[in-house]
Design a protein around this nucleic acid. Structure first.
Lengths: 221, 221
DNA sequence: CGCCAAGCTGAAACGAGCCTGAAAATTGCC
DNA sequence: GGCAATTTTCAGGCTCGTTTCAGCTTGGCG
């Protein structure tokens, strides 16, 4: 789940990146408006966290720029406490939520999950496909016979990607883009290795290989 | 589906070629205006991607040259950010779309499909001929009795070519040109072999042989 | 009618892509 | 710093899509 974090204060940025990493996001960071615009246009994120106070221009301009270009991932705005005006402007420009500093990391993450669910038109915090249930909070998978498997971080993110649209074909390249941030892309074989491990849980035929094209999740196999 | 990629930056060029390859195009590349003019005139492309910044003359000259010579494949122009003038000039000269760097590869590919559909006067992303339906996304063929067949990469590209203009005669030579890039052309018998496999799906008489001339798709056979 | 060229066909050869088990590297934690 | 869990890589084997081959059939032409 790719996330773009736009924050100029390096201390806060690194702290947040760390926190978001552990929460299962693939984080890219930008520290300037310029960088933010570029990355937002070039890469496919599921969500962005945008601090309004940037050295080379307000975060607003970044946001409106993205929206002009029909870039549509949900955006969470960060701003200093109690700035009424900012909130109105932000939401007007199409921000999806708004958080005043200081805040607790758990709250940020919870709200991020919320706006992402909303943007996918989802209500519950678990992903269902056939008799498979992927629990976002417990990072676990419930299989048709009822047993629950705890997943490692990467297992979870890969499976979430596949299960988010059952039947949809995902190339290995695309999956790598989704699971990792820009600056560390592993070998494609890594995906094959994880597919193998997931198949041990869900059953071999539930994840279908389309040779030369990619993989897809097929709940009724 | 042949595509001419004109881009002088070798890094970007190779990256794009890769991406376009996977998207099912047979890509030839040119890195200079001279090369671009030549290939555009000599070969039959369905679409071209043209960077404006070339070492030996602007991409504009290439485009106007093509258009003067009544070469009519759709052209997607690439240019640096926010150059209004370029956009106006480009569209005036008969470019079909315009993308500013940087951009996301998915966007480029989506837009390429769009301008190609437009240039063929087609709207949906599936190709219909009689009761046959070729689905670009699923890379599959629906036959008159309703069953869906998944196609391999080459089967798909060949069938797409034939179905794009039902009744149109295509020589084996021409089909090879369409399916493969300049630097790897297989034996003509390869086409015969694939025709045979497609006939097993669509029915023998739906693909008509014109001895010494080629093949054509005839939906009502 | 008989010859030749073009096309058809089944099978085999080839190679890229995928799978697999294990080893190596990395990360997190005490 | 050392241990355990996780992630990533590697090498080998296997599968399937692609291409070729050789023999056969068909159609056109004298």
């Amino acid at each position: 789940m790719r996330l773009l974090l736009v924050e100029d204060d390096s201390l806060l940025r690194d702290g947040l990146r760390n926190e978001l990493d552990r929460a299962g996001f693939s984080v890219d960071t930008a520290s300037t408006a310029r960088e933010a615009r570029l990355l937002g246009e070039q890469e496919a994120y599921q969500v962005a966290v945008l601090d309004l106070g940037l050295p080379d221009g307000s975060g607003f301009s970044v946001l409106s720029d993205w929206r002009d270009r029909k870039i549509r991932f949900p955006v969470m705005i960060l701003t200093a406490r109690g700035n009424w005006q900012d909130k109105v402007n932000g939401l007007k420009l199409g921000a999806d939520d708004y958080l005043t500093k200081p805040f607790r990391n758990e709250e940020l993450i919870a709200r991020l999950h919320a706006i992402m669910r909303r943007s996918e038109g989802r209500v519950e915090s678990a992903l269902r496909a056939g008799d498979f249930l992927l629990d976002e909070n417990r990072q676990s998978l419930q299989v048709p016979d009822g047993t629950e498997h705890l997943l490692t971080g990467t297992e979870f993110r890969l499976l979430r990607c596949l299960m988010s649209r059952p039947g949809q074909l995902y190339s290995k390249e695309h999956l790598i883009e989704q699971l990792y941030s820009l600056d560390d892309s592993p070998n494609e074989n890594t995906i094959e290795a994880y597919i193998r491990r997931l198949r041990k849980l869900v059953g071999h035929d539930v994840i279908v290989t389309r040779r030369g094209q990619g993989y897809l999740f097929n709940a009724n196999a």
